[in-house]
C-alpha cells in the first residue's frame, strides 16, 4: 500500500490541490487602490467576469471602491454603463473622482428588464464596465450575466445586499462591504484562496 509517489505527479494530475497558491492566475484589472490590489487574491478585478459587491448599507464607500477603475476606463474613452442605479449619481462628485461623464451612460429599467439590459451590455463587448443593482437576482440570472461577461470580455459589477452572502453565486469574485466595523472581506475568489482577514475601509476611502 505504501508506494512512494512523487508529489509533482500528483499535482499534475490534479489529485492534490495546493491551497495557498493561485492555480490559474487570470487576467485582472487594477482597482486603482494599491492596498486593495495587494489584498485581492488575483491582484485586481477579474477581467471578463462578474464581481459581486455585497453591501451592508448605502453610503459606506461602495462607490469610491470603484471610482478609480471607472475613472481610468472613461478617460481612456471606454464606455461605462450604470443599470438602474438606486439613486442619481451626483455629477460633481463623479467628476471630482475623475470620471469622464461623456462616457458614462445610465439605463433605467424595471425588474427583469434590468437583468436583460445588463446581459445585453455585458455581451455586446462595446462597454468596458457594467454596474448593475438587480432587485431580485437568483443563481441562474447571475450565471447568465457571468457568461455574458465572458463573451463580451467586459468587467461586470453587481451590487447586492449583504444577506445574499449566504447564497451561492457564480461570480468570479465576491466581496462583502460591512459598515460596522467598516471593512471589506473576500468571501470567494475563483482560482485563489480568499484571505482570512478583513481590509479596513480606510484602505480605499
Amino acid at each position: 500500500m505504501t508506494a512512494v509517489v512523487a508529489l509533482d505527479s500528483l499535482l499534475d494530475t490534479r489529485r492534490v490541490w495546493r491551497g495557498q497558491a493561485i492555480t490559474s492566475r487570470t487576467a485582472v484589472q487594477p482597482t486603482g487602490h494599491a492596498t486593495l490590489d495587494e489584498f485581492l487574491p488575483g491582484g485586481g478585478w477579474p477581467e471578463s467576469a462578474i464581481s459581486e459587491l455585497l453591501v451592508a448599507a448605502t453610503g459606506i464607500g461602495e462607490l469610491s471602491l470603484l471610482w478609480p477603475t471607472l475613472a481610468r476606463l472613461t478617460t481612456a474613452g471606454e464606455r461605462v454603463v450604470l443599470i438602474t442605479p438606486p439613486h442619481r449619481p451626483y455629477p460633481q462628485a463623479w467628476l471630482a473622482a475623475g470620471v469622464d461623464l461623456r462616457w458614462l451612460t445610465i439605463v433605467q429599467a424595471k425588474g427583469r428588464d434590468a437583468l436583460w439590459a445588463a446581459e445585453q451590455c455585458l455581451r455586446s463587448g462595446s462597454c468596458a464596465a457594467v454596474l448593475c443593482w438587480p432587485q431580485q437576482a437568483d443563481d441562474r440570472a447571475l450565471r447568465r450575466l457571468q457568461v455574458a461577461a465572458e463573451t463580451g470580455q467586459t468587467l461586470g459589477f453587481v451590487y447586492r445586499p449583504l444577506h445574499e452572502a449566504s447564497n451561492p453565486s457564480p461570480a468570479a469574485l465576491r466581496l462583502t462591504i460591512e459598515a460596522q466595523p467598516a471593512q471589506l472581506r473576500v468571501i470567494k475568489c475563483r482560482g485563489g484562496l480568499a484571505p482570512g482577514q478583513a481590509l479596513p475601509a480606510s484602505a480605499w476611502q
Binding site: T105, V107, T151, G152
Partner: peptide, 27 residues
C-alpha cells in the same frame, strides 16, 4: 470580439425599454 457596436446596443435598449431609458448625465 466587439460584435455589437455601441450605437446598435443603445438603440436596442431604447427599442425595448423606451426612448428615455438610456441617458447621459452631465453637470
Amino acid at each position: 470580439q466587439q460584435n455589437v457596436p455601441w450605437e446598435q446596443l443603445r438603440e436596442r435598449l431604447r427599442a425595448r425599454l423606451g426612448d428615455d431609458a438610456v441617458v447621459s448625465l452631465s453637470a
